[in-house]
């Protein structure tokens, strides 16, 4: 298993009497693309701000690259980059000037790096246009360029595709995938566009009302969201044996309560019901579950 690079333990943030982040714990491993999913006000941005050092936690501990104290965390953050909320920029400066200023403060020695990242995000030809005249999408791309400037090992991105057109969203997704695969950059990304995350992430953390309600890998989530025929009868074990004998089912799972998830024969559910009935099995629950990521999240958040 790959190295844990971010370890969050019991993280909490309280403003006056309101707790906006409650006992949050998770781990980010090297090479992950981890999606942080939750509605507005769930606490995603606050969690990212605490990782970035902008907001001091009320309780809990953050460990990044093994560093826990303030000085160590500051040093660890120099290996990371962040894009949180709408990217900040000097409106009276051009894209190049904004990045040049960031290049200097980050201590990036190569002056050509500014042109490189502008080219990557497609802002090379903005010339003398002030950032104040940029569209939201252009500002997002500038934020991503800034995040790439110091060649980070971890990127923390808060809704990076916000305001981008479909082509822009695809380009950013492809860029992030490329950075992850080729340069082994670990990514923590939040987004409302769940379908977009499903094309990108290797792991998911679901946040609701300041709590983590679930953390799972893409594989586990895929299983949860995969369409299946839910079968619960008066005798599930016998029902399974009958289905295996009569129609040779092999793609199934037995849940904790004994009920069956059948991932095949989904076009043939009538036949499945008939076979069970003819063999004396009384169905209690029979239905097709077709949850996608959004439905899965809605069901989970609704609970």
């Amino acid at each position: 298993m790959s190295e844990v690079i971010i370890d969050v333990n019991g993280l909490e943030k309280q403003y006056m009497k309101q707790k906006v982040v409650k006992n949050v714990s998770f781990r980010i491993r090297q090479g992950m693309i981890c999606g942080l999913i939750g509605p507005n006000g769930a606490g995603k941005t606050t969690i990212m701000k605490m990782l970035g050092g902008l907001v001091l936690p009320t309780n809990g501990e953050i460990t990044i690259y093994g560093e826990k104290d303030e000085k160590g965390l500051a040093k660890a953050r120099s290996r990371m980059s962040f894009m949180i909320e709408t990217p900040y920029a000097k409106d009276k400066m051009t894209a190049r000037e904004n990045l040049e200023k960031q290049r200097i403060q980050k201590g990036v020695p190569d002056k050509k790096r500014v042109d490189e990242v502008l080219s990557i995000v497609g802002l090379s030809d903005t010339g003398k246009k002030h950032v104040g005249n940029f569209s939201l999408g252009m500002r997002q791309r500038l934020g991503i360029a800034n995040a790439l400037l110091a060649k980070p090992e971890i990127m923390v991105l808060d809704e990076p595709t916000n305001g981008l057109d479909p082509e822009g969203i695809v380009k950013i997704r492809e860029l992030l995938l490329k950075l992850n695969r080729e340069e082994h950059i670990t990514i923590l990304i939040s987004s409302h566009i769940l379908s977009e995350l499903s094309l990108l992430c290797t792991d998911y953390i679901f946040v609701h009302h300041g709590n983590i309600i679930q953390a799972l890998s893409a594989e586990e989530l895929h299983k949860q969201c995969k369409e299946y025929y839910h079968i619960h009868t008066n005798n599930d074990a016998v029902a399974l044996a009958i289905l295996q004998e009569k129609i040779g089912v092999s793609e199934y799972e037995v849940e904790a309560d004994g009920s069956i998830r059948l991932y095949e024969q989904l076009d043939n559910t009538t036949e499945v019901s008939r076979i069970l009935y003819e063999n004396g099995i009384i169905p209690v629950e029979l239905h097709v579950n077709d949850a996608n990521l959004e439905q899965y999240y809605m069901d989970m958040a609704g609970d």
Binding site: K75, M80, F82, K90
Partner: peptide
């Protein structure tokens, strides 16, 4: 104060400056 007004000061904290 200018960098606090438009929040660009935050980049310095996030870049690992104490």
């Amino acid at each position: 104060g200018w960098d606090s007004t438009d929040k660009t000061i935050n980049y310095e904290i996030m870049a690992g400056h104490s």
